[in-house]
């Protein structure tokens, strides 16, 4: 699974979560760039991502992801066989 595959899966999850099909995530997207991606939806997003990729983030990860790229790289690192 490439970083691009992960990125496009994250885009789908966030679109479903926020009901907004215009969302297009890039590696440098930050949470403030996406309308309605508030802290409430951020937790839901993280839970959905953990379920989808069968990974478990540390509390410190979630606090400090600077952008979507950091999430993508962390998923790639945590996935079995990575």
């Amino acid at each position: 699974m490439t970083e691009n595959d992960i990125l496009s899966d994250l885009t789908i999850i966030l679109r479903d979560l926020l009901g907004d099909d215009s969302i297009m995530l890039a590696m440098d997207t930050q949470r403030e760039h996406v309308p309605n991606w508030d802290s409430f939806n951020y937790i839901n997003f993280m839970v959905a991502v953990e379920q989808k990729f069968r990974v478990k983030f540390k509390v410190s990860d979630i606090e400090t992801f600077p952008n979507v790229g950091a999430i993508v790289r962390q998923i790639a690192a945590l996935r079995p066989g990575a």
Binding site: I13, D16, L17, N44, V47, A48, Q51
Partner: peptide
């Protein structure tokens, strides 16, 4: 699932 529940709620 979690996301589907939120979609249905919307």
């Amino acid at each position: 699932g979690l996301v589907e529940t939120l979609q249905l709620d919307r």
